[in-house]
C-alpha cells in the first residue's frame, strides 16, 4: 500500500500487508495522512473512529466507500473485545484498517491499551491487514509509547516546535523495515499534506 503523499511514500516504501503503521503526534496533527491513505484506498478500508470524526469523514467519502465502525454506536468504550472481533471479522476485501479512537487512551489504563494495541497488531499481521493508527504522545508516558512502537512495523513521528509565534512542524520515519530518516518539514494546508525539505 502507498499512502498517496509522494515524499512520505518515498521514505516509507511500499507498506506490506500485515504491517502496523503508528503515527505518533500531538492532538490530531497529521490526521490528514490517515485521511489521504483512506482516500487512495477507500474501497479497501475500514475505519474505527469517534462519532465526531465520522461526521467529518462523511463529508469526504460517499456512504459505503469506507466501512465505519463507530465508538458508542458499534461498540462501547468498555468493549474492546468487540473491536478486536470486528478487525478479525473484517470482510476479505477490506484489508486496510485505520484506527482513530484516541478517547480509548483516556478511558483505559495504559497497560490495557497497550495489550489491546498489541492484540490488534497481531490480528492485522495474521490476517494480512494493514493497520494504521494514531496516538497522541501527550496521553501516554515514554514507556507506554516504547511498547506501542515495539508492536508497530512502521512509526511516523510528528513534532511541533513553537518559536515565538512561529510554528514549525516536522515528520520523521522513526521505525521502518526500509530505513529511518531525519526530520522533514510537514506542511498542512486546506486538508492537504506535503512533506518538504529536510530540517536541521
Amino acid at each position: 500500500m502507498r499512502i498517496g503523499i509522494p515524499k512520505l511514500d518515498e521514505l516509507l516504501g511500499e507498506i506490506e500487508l500485515g504491517s502496523t503503521v503508528l503515527i505518533e503526534t500531538i492532538g490530531e496533527i497529521g490526521i490528514e495522512i490517515a485521511i489521504e491513505a483512506l482516500k487512495r484506498n477507500k474501497e479497501k478500508s475500514a475505519v474505527f473512529l469517534t462519532p465526531r470524526l465520522k461526521k467529518r469523514l462523511e463529508h469526504i467519502f460517499e456512504l459505503g466507500e469506507v466501512v465505519y465502525l463507530t465508538l458508542g454506536e458499534d461498540f462501547a468504550p468498555q468493549e474492546l473485545f468487540k473491536v478486536t472481533h470486528a478487525l478479525r471479522e473484517l470482510p476479505e476485501d477490506r484489508f486496510i484498517a485505520v484506527f482513530l479512537i484516541q478517547p480509548l487512551l483516556i478511558f483505559h489504563p495504559s497497560q490495557r491499551v497497550y495489550r489491546f494495541f498489541a492484540e490488534l497488531s497481531d490480528i492485522a499481521n495474521a490476517r494480512g491487514i494493514i493497520l494504521m493508527t494514531m496516538i497522541d504522545k501527550r496521553l501516554v508516558d515514554e514507556r507506554t509509547l516504547a511498547t506501542f512502537e515495539e508492536s508497530a512495523t512502521h512509526v511516523i513521528d510528528i513534532v511541533e516546535v513553537i518559536q515565538g509565534f512561529k510554528i514549525i512542524r516536522g515528520l520523521r520515519i522513526k521505525k521502518s523495515p526500509k530505513k529511518i530518516s531525519g526530520f522533514y518539514k510537514l506542511k498542512i494546508k486546506d486538508g492537504n499534506v506535503e512533506v518538504g525539505e529536510l530540517l536541521g
Partner: peptide, 13 residues
C-alpha cells in the same frame, strides 16, 4: 461467545 477475544479487564490483566 467471543471465543478468540480477551475481555481486557480485571483478573484477565
Amino acid at each position: 461467545v467471543y471465543h478468540k477475544e480477551s475481555i481486557f479487564r480485571g483478573s484477565d490483566e
